[in-house]
Design a protein around this nucleic acid. Structure first.
Lengths: 181, 181
DNA sequence: TTCTAATTTGATCGTGCACTCAAAGAAACC
DNA sequence: GGTTTCTTTGAGTGCACGATCAAATTAGAA
């Protein structure tokens, strides 16, 4: 990286990278394509990023952050579920990136796998807090079991929604709450 | 492809391809690595496959087939769930390949996406038949809704199991049956 | 053993990729 | 206008990959 500014260009590069990764996957996304989409030439890319990997990792880190948990610990289960649905519906490109990294990265790279498991654990914790608040009498083991199931189901549904835009993710997600909690 | 035999070599190539894809992903799997693992040289590979793509597609098709549905329509819900858990536990490499293709392929390639949706639909149908048999009084909409939820949750759990070998997939999968059906 | 067809070998090729860098061009300040 | 600092340009490099093929080797039938 030769210079440290050019912030607007940097943003365009990251947006282009995110959209291309969402559409084509991590490996098929080339520097040339990123630059074309961002309206710059190769050299400019390397003024702002040391490597293709750095740009992609930035996008990926943003995606993981976007999934949460951002909860202050006060949100209800219903709100948490709705927030996840909102995220998938409104930030589709980012959600796609997250899912691809979670699966392809998680299954093939030990570092990413560890990170994904940690992230997952935090979400379980956040959801469990919400359920405990609503049902203080419930057994602790039972709380965790239900939230692990709920999150697995939500993730499975999110994936299905990204494959099939006609899938009514919100309806099914809310249905999960009625049955399981 | 110049010749049609060499069956044992072909099998070794496909096994090597499957294991490498399961460990490294679709794109990072190179012809060189496949050949090394299979104990052959590049030329032999091209005597039996027209391209790298053909070998990978063969492995992928096998993986999709291995997930099912193979049901004769008579299996109970419990048996179907157990069979899926068995598949993930006992054919881990194949399960990994399936999951990677479903996600990375499904999200980036229209052909694969259509195929995945068709495959998913067949599984929903198979599971729904089992639930209808056990609970004939249940509303048809309700049956489908529950089986879509169940399969989403199973897929999410299968993924988690592949990330984290200590995750007790079978226990959680059976727990789903108690709650949802 | 001889002959033929099946199979393997490995050097070689072309392509597309990530990445470099010297030079040109803008912007900001005096 | 002059000077410096920031930013873009795009031809160029090297490398790894998928793929090719003529020649060597092996297997089996006659």
């Amino acid at each position: 990286m030769r210079y440290r500014v050019g912030l607007e260009t940097r943003t365009r590069i990251l947006e282009a990278t995110r959209d291309l990764v969402a559409a084509q996957g991590l490996e098929k996304t080339t520097i040339k394509a990123i630059c074309e989409k961002a309206g710059i030439l190769v050299g400019s890319f390397y003024n702002l990023f040391d490597s293709k990997e750095e740009a992609i990792l930035t996008v990926v880190a943003d995606a993981i952050r976007a999934v949460g948990p951002d909860g202050d610990g006060e949100a209800s289960l219903h709100e948490l579920v709705d927030a996840y649905v909102d995220f998938v519906e409104n930030s589709e490109a980012t959600a796609r990136v997250y899912l691809m990294v979670a699966v392809s990265g998680g299954l093939t790279d030990d570092g990413i796998r560890a990170r994904m498991l940690r992230h997952h654990e935090q979400r379980i914790e956040l959801f469990s807090r919400a359920l405990r608040a609503a049902r203080p009498e419930m057994d602790e083991e039972e709380v965790r079991r239900r939230m692990e199931s709920l999150l697995a189901a939500l993730n499975g549904m999110a994936f299905h929604r990204l494959l099939d835009p006609s899938f009514e993710f919100r309806k099914y997600a809310r249905g999960l709450l009625e049955i399981g909690a």
